[in-house]
């Protein structure tokens, strides 16, 4: 007859310390992740973007910002007067210089895209503009950028609930 004490099973304790470590890192990245898009686009704090119900996400491409009577290019990091794109200023040295810079940026972007990932973003350009910008200004910029070689102009807007 056995009268030995039965072996008591001790419950497993999960390793809380390591789990907490992992979740801490996860939370940090989730918080940082919410601002990831701002690294793709540089949107001035005082600009009011138009709302859109589009589901398409933003792609990494050069950016142009139209604000008031000025335009800003992410390539040159400089502001230019909007009327630089008007018919009257097409032949000016400032316009030709800008056109050269943008053409080079397009070629560089295309080279990088082909070398790293063969995607279509080479000739894309993100267009950021104040929601009150008149269509004539938008079209003037779009037309000239298409002539330079940016075949796909991306209108950037904030999310509008359907």
């Amino acid at each position: 007859m056995k009268f030995g004490k039965t072996h008591r099973h001790e419950p497993h304790e999960p390793q809380l310390a390591t789990m907490i470590d992992v979740f801490s890192i996860l939370i940090i990245f989730l918080i940082a992740g919410t601002a990831m898009d701002s690294s793709i686009l540089q949107i001035p704090s005082d600009i009011k973007l138009p709302a859109t119900i589009s589901d398409d996400t933003i792609i990494n491409a050069p950016q142009i910002t139209i604000q008031g009577e000025t335009i800003w290019f992410s390539v040159t990091k400089q502001k230019y007067p909007l009327n630089l794109f008007s018919e009257a200023n097409m032949g000016t040295q400032e316009f030709l210089d800008l056109k050269n810079v943008l053409t080079q940026a397009l070629a560089e972007n295309s080279k990088q895209s082909n070398a790293i990932i063969k995607n279509e973003s080479a000739d894309y350009l993100n267009l950021v503009a104040e929601k009150s910008t008149p269509y004539k200004d938008i079209f003037l910029v779009v037309k000239n950028l298409k002539d330079i070689g940016f075949k796909n102009i991306v209108f950037v807007g904030t999310v509008q609930k359907k």
């Binding site: 990245f29 990831m36 898009d37 792609i59 894309y124 796909n152």
Partner: peptide
Amino acid sequence: IFFLILSTSFEEVRQNTI
């Protein structure tokens, strides 16, 4: 998790491509 986070994008802005 690193890879999952890197492949996820939390979007505030959307695009319309012409």
